[in-house]
Nucleic acid binder design. Structure first.
Length: 269
DNA sequence: CTGTAATCCTGCGAGC
DNA sequence: TGCTCGCAGGATTACA
């Protein structure tokens, strides 16, 4: 579900609601999340104060006065804060009571997400750095160019690889390729430098616009305050199979690429 | 190195 | 109406 714009929205929403608060109680369910059972990890957060909230790729870093919680929303994860008396929806796995009366909740229908405690921030950053390449807003044009020219993989596969560029998922890969007028089937090593730079800029443009729309709510996604995203209204190709291409009016094609459903215009990409 | 498929889960819509 | 099937925003692993 959540890609970079959705995770960024969650973090921005939650920051004023939870940073500076002390966790006074943790309630966790019995269900297994990715990487272990939630209740066995809950005690690591008891009586810790939330110092900062950050995003890296699609990961959420809840920095504590000692250590941190690393959260991934998987496909259906929701991290929300609000009053403790709001109804507890099914598949709510962890609830953090905060000292000011607020409550942070982690809910995840499919349980592909994770909540992992780290005692040392250095260890957490080692863990992330092993899995993630540069952030889309920070990657240098030369770095992105070298990375793509070095691979024979198709663009769709390269963009989904988090070590190439962090935070792009299936939706924003398709949308960025459309804006860059590049075929998802094209191999990285076959691109011209100007095309790679066009792609980098397209990714930045698409992600920024999506963040401004609070991400895309197509199934379960909600922001940290429970508010939906609106970018799904702006999709140019994703989920628009058969619709006229916004640029040339020929129908949008659908295929399976890199194991994922892929949408693009045959004529102008 | 690349591509493909399976795995972890639940819910929903399509089609019969 | 009720059933089965395939598919869904992700990450990791195994294998050809």
């Amino acid at each position: 579900m959540p890609e970079l714009p959705e995770v960024e929205t969650v973090v921005r929403d939650l920051r004023p609601m939870i940073v500076g608060r002390r966790i006074v109680r943790v309630k966790a369910g019995q269900k297994q999340l990715r990487g272990g059972q939630s209740n066995s990890r809950a005690r690591a957060f008891h009586e810790r104060t939330i110092r900062a909230l950050d995003r890296r790729g699609k990961w959420i870093i809840v920095e504590l006065d000692r250590g941190a919680a690393l959260i991934h929303l998987g496909m259906t994860g929701q991290l929300t804060a609000g009053p403790p008396d709001r109804p507890v929806e099914p598949h709510t796995h962890v609830m953090f009571d905060l000292h000011d009366g607020g409550q942070l909740r982690f809910r995840d229908i499919r349980r592909f997400g994770s909540v992992t405690p780290f005692v040392e921030m250095a260890e957490l950053h080692r863990y992330l750095d092993a899995r993630l390449g540069p952030e889309p807003f920070a990657i240098k044009p030369a770095e992105f160019r070298q990375s793509l020219l070095a691979t024979k993989r198709v663009l769709k596969a390269a963009l989904l690889d988090q070590t190439v560029i962090a935070g792009v998922g299936n939706i924003y890969a398709d949308e960025s390729l459309f804006v860059a007028r590049l075929s998802p089937h094209c191999r990285g090593c076959d691109l011209k430098p100007v095309e790679i730079e066009r792609l980098r800029k397209a990714i930045v443009t698409v992600l920024r616009f999506a963040i401004n729309r609070r991400g895309s709510s197509i199934r379960n996604y909600v922001g940290g305050s429970g508010l939906n995203g609106e970018y799904q209204r702006e999709f140019r190709v994703y989920g628009r199979t058969g619709d006229p291409c916004p640029r040339c009016r020929s129908p949008i094609t659908h295929c399976r690429l890199a194991g994922r459903s892929t949408h693009y215009c045959r004529k102008c990409q």
